[in-house]
Design a protein around this nucleic acid. Structure first.
Lengths: 211, 211
DNA sequence: ATATTAAGTGGAGGGCGTCTCCGGAAATAA
DNA sequence: TTATTTCCGGAGACGCCCTCCACTTAATAT
């Protein structure tokens, strides 16, 4: 499992180092002000990458992304040393909305209904972002990419929802709740109409978790 | 649907001796006996590819497969014009065992138990064939590969099982049963220990389908 | 305004993959 | 054996990943 050295994407199976991405001006006092062109290029790359992943899935060509963004391939790699880093950066913003929605649903809905509602939102979300769905089922990206894409509050969001529902005594769940998302994303590889299937699956899952 | 259409060479996708499906024998009596070395190479390729997919997933290098099989890359492409064609050929035999198991379970177990038992078998199967699990969630291969890998009786097998369970009035299911497999395969992208998760998921699914 | 300097740029290049093409080898039929 | 047909196999064109480093340029110091 770990020894897969023949992988053509050298960095894919490595976990990303801690967060080079968030700018977070935590007073690193000594240094000079960051260059303006660097940040500009970073944003251009993110924009282009988002579009590319959206329409070609997570294995879109990085060279092409750089070309379309009008920067050299070296610049892309400087900003995002691995494909995972780029994917993570792209979807970080995106998935934050899901996390926010979770907080809102918790305040306005009873436990199980909130959970169900959020899962439905998750399906909608996968629907609007083809690349996103692919990331979840990705083989190329594997676990690393999955975790990366999730590290924006999604695990916490669903954990919050399921914990509350469990605490209310209405459901029981003896597995990592993120696997519910994996299961849902699993049907996203089906053809058109998968969203209906996904929604039915949600109801099955919730019914199956009820005590 | 459009994916596998690269079949410009006739008859390439013919399968081995006891395959009643494709052979179809439409009186091409005019031609000579197929060459022995061709069939030999085809089998060597299948063997090697099975091993390669098993340990490196469905994106294993075709060049390496050809090299290990001791044939030229051209020969590989002659027999299997696309990666999907090779994957399909490899897993056709494999999945037939699952279909057989379904028939057996139907005769020896009550409806729901048979279904559950078969799903557990499916998990075991994914476990022994890493490549197999990857195929289900594959992006590279996409839908085409998925369908290809499934076209060996797996859809029929699970349809049989679920139909029987539904007919018995014990469960209800308003979706393509193959999506149950997709959901299960979805958690296979998780890290080590995913098999336990998958088994718990099965129980949740079955509980959720109960009327 | 000019010099200084370190961060940032971009593309050439090596390695590996996919896929096509076709001259030549090999097996079958006569 | 010879003729005919099928099949082999690797060279070659091209794409992608990723590294490396000579050069550029924005931010500072003078």
């Amino acid at each position: 499992m770990e020894g897969v050295s023949g992988n053509k994407y050298g960095g894919i199976l490595r976990f990303s180092r801690d967060d080079p991405i968030i700018v977070a001006e935590t007073g690193d006092s000594s240094s000079r002000k960051p260059r303006a062109d660097a940040e500009r290029n970073r944003l251009r790359l993110l924009d282009t990458a988002k579009a590319a992943f959206g329409e070609k899935g997570p294995s879109a060509s990085l060279e092409e992304i750089a070309r379309e963004a009008g920067v050299g391939i070296g610049t892309l790699y400087r900003h995002f040393p691995t494909r995972d880093a780029l994917i993570e950066a792209v979807y970080r913003n995106e998935t934050m909305q899901l996390a926010d929605a979770a907080a809102r649903l918790i305040e306005t809905h009873p436990p199980v209904k909130a959970l169900r509602q959020w899962l439905l939102l998750f399906v909608d979300y996968l629907g609007t972002k083809y690349g996103m769905a692919a990331v979840f089922g990705s083989v190329t990206g594997g676990t690393a990419a999955l975790y990366a894409a999730c590290n924006s509050g999604t695990p916490e969001a669903i954990a919050l929802l399921t914990d509350r529902a469990v605490a209310s005594g209405e459901i029981k769940l003896d597995m990592d709740p993120i696997d519910l998302l994996r299961a849902i994303a699993g049907v996203a590889s089906a053809g058109p109409g998968w969203q209906d299937t996904a929604r039915r699956l949600i109801d099955i899952l919730i019914a199956g978790m009820r005590v």
